[in-house]
Design a protein around this nucleic acid. Structure first.
Length: 563
RNA sequence: GCGCCCGUAGCUCAAUGGAUAGAGCAUCCGGUUUCUACCCGGACGGUUGGGGGUUCGAGUCCCUCCGGGCGCACCA
């Protein structure tokens, strides 16, 4: 029995009551919650349907609840329908109906939890988009983990997803980068507005070694040569590091390409067609104030130069032209001023900004070490990089600890605790549940137990492999209920662009499993005989392991068989 | 000055307008004769920054005040 079927039964009960004249029809039907209540005393599932409808049908909530409950009782698999509190409808499932879920999950395998809610939708997720002028720092690392997990979750909801990295390879930052490299290589002081990290020294030395004669070039040529060589090396370094972080981008989009391909002209033209472009005082503007921006924005300066904003527009239009229905941007909190203007761009291009564009503003990451905040600065050399974090805590712990918090909330990571690998970082707690189940299944195998076929060691009578009704222990039911939540969790994580929900869910699931394990012996002890309940519990174990594995995969975190 | 985000237990953080606001850590007390104790159970801990409003119901939505962070360019 899955939650979807229950919801259908609820809606059917309502429709039947209306058809029988017991309730007046309500059109349109308001949003009805149907979910697992936090408090287990409130049944396996609960709905606020009566509370929502009461006023509209002119009856008391408990009245309405009673009418619907009467029609819901007798639904196969539903053991009890109770009315509680102000008028909540609480459903309790029969153990057999609930237990069947274990078989359903095992059969669905890696596909359990996946849905079609975003089928046919093409989504572009852009994240990190760091300047190719230095290593990726901790903030980038958060976007790497969250952006990649978001892409995985969206794909699990059926969307066709592309991960995209925008390379800012044009502009003064890159020039300053080149100037810094050139200065170091020729023994000069790095310019005040340049890059001062020690990686600049290493990079400059490597460039000199790989490009004999570069120092003999004229000053101007040398600047360009260092800039270009540094760009190539630094970008390669970022890509390599991201691959080791299990974050693979489908598209690396160069800003230079954007300009050379004519995309800027095309973008500009698109906006002109929609009538939001105007000229004033020698400059070309976009009237973003038509759509909630606080001021209009310049596209072409009076000196003829394009603004960075013009690139943003071209890039957005280009994404849409490449067939993406939705463009998601992950930006740092210091970019929140861009939200309205980006949304205005979408609107000016004729799109619905509430659908076609989604800007997620993430708060920055702070890191504590030795009780003090570790300061992050891209310009200064004294920063924590993605590599530093991974070297200290590993890819799994780094990814997990960055994903498990909503990107919109500020995050303080205590490096000392992550290094200690305590429960402060719950990735171990979740992975341990997976390893623990793997161990149980291994042991079952070694005992000659074929839980799929329901046959035991030589001499045992083969049984019908799985009797769902045997899973009636309080903690078995709780575990089954949690397993049933997974599809809904994945779908809502995708819809809300909040992959942290998957991590939180996994922790809840791991807890449910550990509690079950603590109370319910799976395999027979030494001289005990093999009973049918062992088969049922093995199915439950296998189902749980599958869901943990599926969930961890959505986070890009490994599911170890042994720990 | 204008705008955006945030304020939840000692700490780090959850909670899609639902029922008694939850976890982990920290502190204290317990639990394993056999599947991985990286586990489980219990105790302690709160005026959800303050005040007002909306409604059957508000941590969540609206107004206001306080506190913290960030942003305001014909910069990139």
């Amino acid at each position: 029995m899955e939650i979807g079927q229950l919801r259908e039964a609820l809606v059917a009960a309502l429709a039947a009551a209306v058809a029988a004249g017991e309730l007046t029809a309500v059109e349109p039907l308001p949003t009805i919650d149907f979910e697992r209540p936090r408090n287990r005393d409130h049944g396996d599932y609960a709905s606020n349907i009566a509370l929502v409808l009461a006023k509209r049908v002119g009856r008391s909530p408990r009245d309405v609840a009673e009418v619907i409950a009467a029609r819901l009782r007798g639904t196969p698999g539903v053991e009890a329908v109770d009315i509680a509190g102000p008028g909540f409808l609480n459903l309790t499932l029969a153990a057999s109906a609930q237990g069947e879920l274990a078989r359903t999950i095992v059969a669905a395998g890696t596909q359990y939890g996946y849905s079609k809610t975003l089928a046919g939708v093409r989504i572009n997720v852009e994240f990190i988009s760091a300047n190719p002028t230095g290593p990726l720092h901790l903030g980038h690392t958060r976007w790497a983990a969250v952006g990649d997990a978001m892409a995985r979750v969206l794909a699990a909801a059926g969307a066709e997803v592309a991960r995209e990295f925008y390379i800012n390879d044009r502009g003064v930052q890159l020039d300053r980068f080149g100037a810094s490299l050139e200065a170091v290589a020729t023994g000069k002081a790095v310019p005040e507005d340049g890059y001062h990290g020690s990686y600049i020294v290493d990079l400059a030395a490597r460039i000199v070694a790989e490009h004999p004669g570069i120092l003999e070039l004229s000053q101007a040529d040398r600047m360009v040569a260092f800039r270009e060589a540094g760009y190539v090396l630094q970008l390669a370094q970022q890509r390599q590091v991201l691959e080791t972080f299990h974050t693979h981008f489908d598209v690396w989009y160069s800003e230079r390409t954007l300009h050379s391909s004519g995309a800027v002209e095309r973008g500009m033209q698109r906006l002109r067609e929609h009538g939001h472009v105007f000229e004033l005082e020698g400059a070309v503007w976009l009237r973003t104030t038509d759509f909630d921006d606080d001021k209009d924005r310049v596209l072409i300066k009076s000196d003829g130069e394009l603004t960075y904003f013009a690139s943003d527009i071209a890039y957005y239009v280009d994404k849409r032209d490449r067939g993406f229905d939705i463009c998601i941007y992950l930006l740092g909190a210091d970019h929140h001023g861009y939200v309205n203007r980006l949304r205005a761009v979408a609107a000016c291009a004729g799109d619905d900004p509430n659908y076609a564009i989604d800007v997620v503003i993430g708060q920055l990451v702070k890191m504590m070490k030795g009780g003090e905040e570790v300061r992050l600065s891209k310009r200064a050399g004294n920063m924590i990089t993605l590599e530093d974090l991974v070297n200290e805590v590993g890819v799994d712990a780094a990814r997990y600890s960055l994903i498990r918090y909503p990107a919109t909330s500020p995050l303080v990571l205590d490096l000392d605790l992550l290094v200690q690998r305590t429960n402060e970082n719950p990735v171990y707690y979740v992975q341990y549940a997976h390893a623990r189940i793997s161990s149980v299944l291994r042991n079952a195998s070694e005992l000659g137990i074929d839980w799929v076929a329901g046959s035991g060691p030589a001499g045992q009578i083969a049984m019908d492999g799985f009797d769902a009704a045997l899973l009636d222990h309080e903690r078995e039911k709780a575990l089954l209920g949690t397993l049933g939540e997974f599809p809904r969790i994945v779908a809502s994580a995708a819809e809300l662009r909040e992959p942290h929900r998957v991590a939180r869910y996994l922790e809840e699931l791991a807890t449910a499993y550990h509690k079950f394990y603590d109370s319910c012996r799976v395999l027979p002890r030494g001289d005990e005989s093999l009973e049918p309940v062992s088969f049922a519990r093995l199915w439950l174990c296998a189902a749980t392991r599958q869901v943990i594995a599926n969930g961890l995969d959505l986070l890009g975190v490994s599911a170890p068989e042994r720990m």
